[in-house]
């Protein structure tokens, strides 16, 4: 049987108005899905360091690499990652986006600027996800040098949000 011979494929498409005007029967359900996700060992330490205003990574001696975010095992060689490495709070923009919509597709007038920032001192260079700030959206470039802007110590809670955002490194 050839697809070319099938006159009408099954499947009935509806419009949003069919729901609004109750032309079709439907039910709604809001799952009561609330979670508390444990930080775990490595990320627990990462958050504790963030609260102190520091970035920390881990090193795998076998693979000779230093990575962030920290993890308790190296997913390359499956050995424990047990050497903590303090890292500077500076880095390089690996890639970025200018995002004009929220997850539920509402428009933003000013874009958010998510970026992957390769953190100095990692080897080979690897990054974390964060936001850029104190920069004109059109001025952001891949390769731009950036540094973390921290919340004041009394506002820090041990969260990735203890870094407000990364901003361009100012010369001098």
């Amino acid at each position: 049987m050839m697809t070319a011979q099938i006159k009408e494929f099954p499947g009935v498409g509806l419009r949003e108005s069919d729901f609004e005007q109750r032309k079709v029967l439907y039910t709604e359900w809001v799952p009561n899905a609330r979670y508390a996700w444990d930080a775990g060992v490595a990320i627990g330490r990462y958050l504790a360091e963030l609260k102190e205003g520091r970035l920390i990574g881990v090193r795998c001696r076998h693979c000779r690499r230093t990575v962030i975010p920290p993890r308790v095992f190296c997913e390359w060689c499956f050995r424990p990652m047990d050497e903590w490495v303090p890292l500077p709070d500076t880095g390089t923009v690996n890639t970025f986006s200018l995002c004009y919509v929220t997850w539920d597709m509402r428009r933003l007038t000013e874009p958010e600027i998510p970026a992957v920032i390769d953190i100095d001192g990692t080897h080979p260079p690897v990054g974390i996800l964060h936001l850029l700030g104190e920069v004109e959206p059109q001025a952001v470039q891949i390769g731009m040098r950036v540094q973390a802007v921290w919340k004041p110590p009394e506002e820090r809670t041990g969260s990735i949000l203890d870094i407000r955002y990364f901003r361009p490194v100012r010369e001098g």
């Binding site: 990320i43 975010p69 929220t102």
Partner: peptide, 9 residues
């Protein structure tokens, strides 16, 4: 813990 607090989509 490390990404979702940033409000990603």
């Amino acid at each position: 813990t490390t990404e979702r607090p940033l409000g990603p989509n």
